[in-house]
Amino acid sequence: MTDWLVGLMETLGAPGAGLAIALENLFPPLPSEVILPLSGFTASRGEMDLLDVLVCTTLGSVIGALALYWVGALLGRERTLAIAAKLPLVKTSDIEKTEAWFLKHGRKTVFFGRMIPLFRSLISVPAGVERMPLVPFTLLTATGSLIWNTIFVMAGYLLGENWSLVEAYVGIGSKVVLGLVVLAIVVFVAVRLTERRKGRHASRR
């Protein structure tokens, strides 16, 4: 991964870092926790301009987010409900509740979601499904991404040869987030299975 990123930045410079971040939005396994500090470290060596790195990585974040936004927009609300109706243990009311919550808190979610691993990419899809106005979506995405990118690029810039420490510490946070997501899924499945069993018992009486 590191060799590929180094090669990309050596070939394209700061736009290469931006391209990597755009791809990271589309493929979350590409970690921004590696891309951004490495970009900062490369800038500290004078091989890229620091401001160019911040501009290009933020632009990459916006481009990747817009791509996923349009995936959600093309999917649309009716298709989402139709897919949900076919999924085991999922009710259309779940989607409707999520929809109502997003309509109420969507702007804050898009902004702060840019600073949470995993959700950084995923939040763009429901924004597209709900057809959140494009201008606010783009501005919130750019602002949240700029904050996130600046923190990690500057960390790599200041840490120099020790830039990989950023990945080590942030990786712990990413695992915590992933663990909470898995726990939430387990609880959801357990609750639905319990409801199903109770429904069967009630129908037999």
Rank of each mutant, 00 (worst) to 15 (best):
T2I: 07
W4M: 03
W4D: 08
M9K: 02
E10T: 13
L12S: 01
A14P: 05
P15C: 15
P15D: 12
P15G: 14
G16E: 01
G16H: 02
G18S: 15
G18H: 04
L19K: 06
I21K: 03
A22S: 13
E24K: 06
P29S: 08
L30I: 11
L30P: 09
S32C: 09
S32M: 07
E33P: 01
V34I: 15
P37S: 01
S39I: 01
F41C: 04
T42N: 04
A43T: 02
A43R: 01
G46N: 14
E47L: 08
D49H: 11
D49K: 10
L50F: 06
L50W: 01
D52T: 06
L54N: 02
T57E: 06
S61D: 08
S61F: 03
V62G: 12
I63M: 05
L66R: 11
A67M: 09
Y69G: 03
V71H: 10
A73E: 15
A73H: 10
L75N: 02
R77F: 09
E78Y: 12
R79S: 10
T80W: 11
L81H: 11
A85N: 08
V90K: 14
T92K: 03
D94P: 10
D94Y: 12
I95T: 08
K97M: 12
W101S: 13
L103N: 05
G106W: 04
R107V: 04
R107G: 05
R114L: 07
I116V: 07
I116W: 05
P117K: 04
I123M: 04
I123H: 07
S124E: 15
V125Q: 12
P126M: 10
P126Y: 15
P126H: 13
G128S: 13
G128T: 13
P133S: 07
V135K: 09
P136M: 09
L139P: 07
L140R: 03
T141Q: 07
T143P: 05
T143H: 02
G144T: 06
S145Q: 14
L146E: 05
L146N: 04
L146A: 10
I147C: 03
I147P: 14
W148Y: 12
M154S: 11
M154N: 03
G156M: 01
G156A: 03
L159M: 03
E161R: 05
N162F: 01
N162C: 00
N162Y: 01
E167A: 01
E167M: 01
A168K: 03
A168T: 12
G173I: 03
K175H: 05
V176Q: 02
V176Y: 02
G179D: 14
G179V: 10
V182K: 13
A184N: 04
A184H: 09
V191W: 10
L193P: 11
R197W: 06
R200N: 05
H201E: 11
R204A: 05
R205I: 13
R205T: 13
